[in-house]
Design a protein around this nucleic acid. Structure first.
Length: 487
RNA sequence: GGUCCCAUAGACUAACGGUUAGGUCACAAGCCUUUCACGCUUGCAGUAGGGGUUCGAAUCCCCUUGGGAUCACCA
């Protein structure tokens, strides 16, 4: 069997991280089996139309490297790939069900439906009461057709039989059985002529020859309806795999209320694509359990639905950040430099690629995001050094000025301003005056950076360059030191 | 409330029915070091509870408890 899977989001504004995980698993599964992945846009709710939503969705998928084979922007033999462009199809198949007695017309207003639910509120039974409402059964087929001919609004509902058992085999969860007595007479075609998810989904999956439906667990309760639809059409249903949910800290379904859920938010925060994908892939599935970092090729090679977990997984930002750090450490300086150069920052200077490469090499072991360099090392971008009183008290003592002044002259006298030479000069100087190197490192860092800790000092000096270092030393001694002492 | 799904440490997870229940994040300590990180080492911490089946159960079955999803002319 040819593997054909689909990711079928509705364009409600942005791609949810749960959606990305679903898309990713579809992609990994398709690639693993040399199959095809389809992107289908489920835009059958006109009231929820959002400008640019499809473009956002696609750009987030592309960012993550999920390259589907067919979709609204990639032609295939099963298009169109937007449901709003397939309306005749749904109506055609709804009519087929009507003719076969598997579906029927109904004319209830939203007020009447509301009243019906109110009436059965005590038993909490909101299912459609076929024999109590206004439809083809209570009005008769003649009257129904007359109403439609006269322009009455109508919907088409699925006729759900009594006392039958619907069962299907979920790849992740095994056999699931539900009685038809628990299934509602679902609306298939809305009064605006658009299909609901259930009809459109089944018709499209069939016509697009989808072999495996891999989707979120929230769809599990409506899968029996879909099976019933397949049976009503006498079609063979696809295989199903319902993925565990991504969860908030409190174990509820991951939602906007408890933090970012839009993939674009994570892009904007500066997560590396490969890191984010790596983290998402391992939420609910792990090929071995003793590795945390995999390439996308390895994910494709190892992916299998059978090993996907059943229980939901909490989306833990702390671990995401750790994964991102791992990727920063293993990324090329060129890549990191280009990210740094493109990251927004508050400094009105333009830095060279060469300088950016030096910066990422210097700081990449102590950042979570590349752009952190701008916040942890302002002294690399501006001469406006902020000298903190607390740091001064911590890193400067009565002897510091006497120790540092001659050393500055030694630095000024060398033409070889490399970290190793600076280290040698400093070390032999410290030995000559019989002091520990820490006695000179701390004051130097304070003078140059205003900070009490940070990256390797001599490497920092090399990146900064001789001229800036000497100027800052002198400026500090002449203009800053007395102020700090007197504060 | 009905229906369905789920249950290994705080979080992510591994474990043909046979392991001292393994790895990772977080947390703690130590080492490294000019500081802070990185790294390394060590530690803390788990099979929800109760019954079965079995020579043997985290693993299979049942019950309880707990959590979640879903029940729209939204997807």
């Amino acid at each position: 069997m040819d593997v054909r899977v689909r990711f079928a989001p509705s364009p409600t504004g942005y791609l949810h991280v749960g959606g990305l995980r679903t898309a990713l698993y579809n992609y990994l599964f398709a690639k693993h089996h040399n199959g095809k992945m389809i992107l289908r846009i489920e835009d059958t709710d006109r009231s929820r139309y959002v400008e640019n939503a499809i473009e956002n969705l696609i750009s987030s998928l592309k960012w993550a490297g999920i390259n589907y084979d067919e979709g609204p922007d990639i032609d295939g033999n099963y298009g169109p790939y937007k449901q709003s462009e397939r309306l005749e199809l749904y109506n055609k198949y709804a009519n087929l069900l009507l003719e076969n007695g598997k579906a029927y017309y109904a004319f209830d207003s939203s007020e009447e439906l509301e009243a019906m639910r109110q009436k059965h509120q005590d038993t909490y039974d909101p299912k459609y009461k076929r024999l109590e409402m206004k439809n083809q059964f209570t009005l008769g087929i003649e009257k129904s057709k007359e109403l439609i001919a006269n322009g009455s609004e109508f919907v088409i509902r699925l006729f759900v039989p009594q006392d039958e058992e619907i069962s299907f085999n979920d790849i992740i969860r095994g056999e699931i059985k539900v009685s038809t007595n628990d299934i509602d007479d679902q609306i298939l075609i809305k009064s605006d002529g658009y299909p609901t998810y259930h009809l459109a989904n089944v018709v499209d999956d069939h016509l697009m020859e989808i072999s495996h439906v891999i989707r979120g667990e929230e769809w599990l309760p409506s899968t029996p309806k879909h099976i019933l639809l397949y049976q009503s059409f006498a079609w063979t249903p696809p295989l199903y795999a319902h993925l565990p949910l991504l969860l908030n800290k409190d174990k509820s379904k991951l939602s906007k209320r408890q933090g970012s859920v839009a993939v674009e938010d994570f892009i904007q925060k500066g997560y590396l694509k490969d890191a984010f994908v790596n983290f998402i892939a391992l939420l609910g599935w792990n090929p071995t359990g003793d590795r945390e970092i995999y390439s996308i090729e390895e994910f494709i090679e190892f992916f299998n639905l059978e090993k996907v977990n059943k229980a939901g997984a909490v989306f833990d930002i702390q671990k995401l950040d750790w994964v991102n750090q791992q990727y920063i450490k293993q990324s090329s300086p060129e890549l990191l430099a280009s990210i740094l150069l493109n990251a927004p920052n508050e400094y009105n200077i333009s830095i060279t690629n060469d300088y950016a490469i030096k910066l990422v090499n210097l700081f990449k072991e102590r950042i979570t995001f590349v752009s952190d360099i701008y916040t942890i090392a302002p002294f690399m971008f501006t001469e406006q050094i902020n000298y903190d009183k607390e740091y001064f008290k911590k890193r400067w003592n009565d002897k510091s000025e006497g120790i540092i002044t001659p050393l500055i002259q030694l630095y000024a006298d060398t033409d070889n301003f490399t970290h190793s030479n600076l280290h040698d000069i400093s070390k032999s100087y410290a030995e000559s005056i019989n002091t520990k190197i820490g006695e000179i490192m701390h004051p130097i860092r304070l003078m140059l950076t205003g900070q009490s800790s940070g990256a390797s000092m001599f490497e920092t000096m090399e990146v900064l360059g001789k001229e800036k270092c000497i100027n800052r030393f002198r400026f500090f001694l002449n203009n800053v030191l007395n102020k700090l002492k007197n504060e």
